[in-house]
Amino acid sequence: MFQFIFRRLSLVIPTFIGITLLTFTLIRLIPGDPIEVMAGERGVSAERHAELSAQLGFDQPLYVQYFHYVTGVLQGDLGNSLVTKEPVLSEFLTLFPATIELAFCAAIFAIFVGLPAGMIAAVKRGTLFDHSVMTFSLTGYSMPIFWWALLLMLIFSVTLGWTPVSGRIDVVYWIDDVTGFMLVDSILSGEDGAFSSAVAHLILPSIVLGTIPMAVIARMTRSSMLEVLSEDYIRTARAKGIAPWRVIIIHALRNALIPVITVIGLQVGILLSGAILTETVFAWPGIGKWLIESISRRDYPVVQGGILIVATIIIVVNLMVDITYGIVNPRIRHSR
């Protein structure tokens, strides 16, 4: 088992080197630099530009800059934002709860809609319900997130006026930042209607972010369930004279869930990358919006550091899925 974990961990090192190299070079390939962006339309003189460049260390050769960056990372220093002068890590930690909250609610939506939908589609295969679920999930999976977000916003926020357009909570509330999770903080604040306002603000972004994972979970559950339903032990269960719902919920679902759980674990990456677009559209103050803004400001340390942290989270989650699977299934553990 330890050998298995060690082998997986050793594969992570080249991945990290790749991520640092990619983010470092790609952000510098974009035309314009942070100084020009900061100066804005007023422009900046060549002398002042050179002076500032030297101050920020941009006059050094790229490999030297990369070396400084990597040495910093290895010492746990992701650098300071060029715009706010705050450490990247502390900015990240301030904004991360908002993203977690959104991703968590999206995951809840994806699981609580995707699982039953896939299950019922499998049980009623070939019916109108089955075809609708499969069509809807395929559409949801292929639809661009930002377009889906705008569409829902237009229908539910603008036309029907059921949900707020953007943000985390109504501007009339002033909520103290205790945990960083608005759902919790709004309750702690004790203000009337703050919690329901926070919930209302979460609904559309969660649906938008949860659509792709929901589609994946629904399709996976359906195919896994179809396979299990044709197994001999399902026939045995029915031959016992058990009620049909019990055969499905107890005997079939338990077996069908094994591959689905793996897929749910892998959706974490999709949730975090999807958060970037969702947060931007809904003006959700999380790391997605933060990263997008830092790219347009050419805030090199924030882009490099932020992407590195997100990549680390995805790698860790994948590693955990791999390891749990190794524990559950001995055949995987022993294969080379």
Binding site: D232, Y233, A239
Partner: peptide, 19 residues
């Protein structure tokens, strides 16, 4: 079914629920 009329099947290894 399962009380007055019961049935046993061909392949016992796959006829029991593994979970």
């Amino acid at each position: 079914t399962g009380s007055d009329i019961a049935m046993i099947f061909q392949d016992p290894m796959t006829s029991l629920n593994p979970c």
